[in-house]
Amino acid sequence: MLPQRLKNFVRHEPTTALLALVFIIALLAGQVLGVTAPTTLLARAAIFAMAALSLSFILGQGGMVSLGHAAPMGLGAYVTLSLSMLGFKDLFLVMACAFVAGATFSALTGLIALRTRGVYFIMITLAFAQMAYYAMSSLSVFGGTDGIALPVRSTLFGWPLLRADSATALLAVLMLGVMFWGLSRVTRSRFGMALRASHLNEARFTALGFEPLPYRLLAYSFAGGLSALAGVLLANLTDYIAPSFLDWHRSGELIVMVVLGGVARPAGAILGAFALIYLESLLGGLTQYWNLALGLILLAIVLLRGRFEGATRITP
């Protein structure tokens, strides 16, 4: 059963499979050789891949282009921070609370945002994320706009698992794998089909007697919860939490990751996240003005891709 699945995956997604193999080998080599810097980068890439994957789910399946997906992710980090300040550091507790916080935020804002479509939806999600950003910036308990250091990293049953970044990387890759598997199950389920139908032909979907809003809202808040889980790991990796975690630039980066990898491809978001994080790190080592270089590369990709493969286009 599993080998057959694996074979199918390799046949349909050769690039993804190859890259996954390269990363697994690199990670194992890093562990054996005791090189730690690449594992921090790997952890970062896997964490952003988690957030990008959850965004890719609502974007690809539900047509919901959220430009505020960094908000639930940042809230996850702030939940980690506030629980840690109160003395609660168990990873399961923190993750559960973060998931609930991210999902609740998304559900509440989704109630209003999902009444709208297209350009409106993009701008409203952006505005709600800015609202969360300003709310966190003005809380002096959390250091205001400057942010604050995480008092202590999360533990697993009292065991300081996340003390080393390599362990965080391992956990992130593991969770990413589980998420990928889980989301592709959801995509194939009845719920996933209904969600897709609600976006591909809303009039027909409604005519069949379905109500689109519950499906969209459930998917939207579920993705928010997943994004918050990525936020928990990010807080544990950086040890420092600032409002810039919820900044709209972060949301923009998540969109870039998803679009870069391709929405139609299941693992596209993961590829995009790894590509962007490694590209940023590479360019950041070369020049102070790496944003300029990154922008030029992204612009070239968009303009040239539109010319060569019009078929990858997804218009929500």
């Binding site: 993009i122 944003n291 992204l298």
Partner: peptide, 30 residues
């Protein structure tokens, strides 16, 4: 830039104009 994206989806437009922000913000500070 914009002419070539006028008929593309919102996603391409978000990506391209986000890239323009990165380019010009950094370019100006350079």
């Amino acid at each position: 830039v914009f002419r070539h994206l006028a008929r593309a989806g919102h996603l391409e437009q978000v990506l391209a104009t986000f890239a323009l922000i990165l380019i010009f913000t950094d370019g100006v500070s350079m």
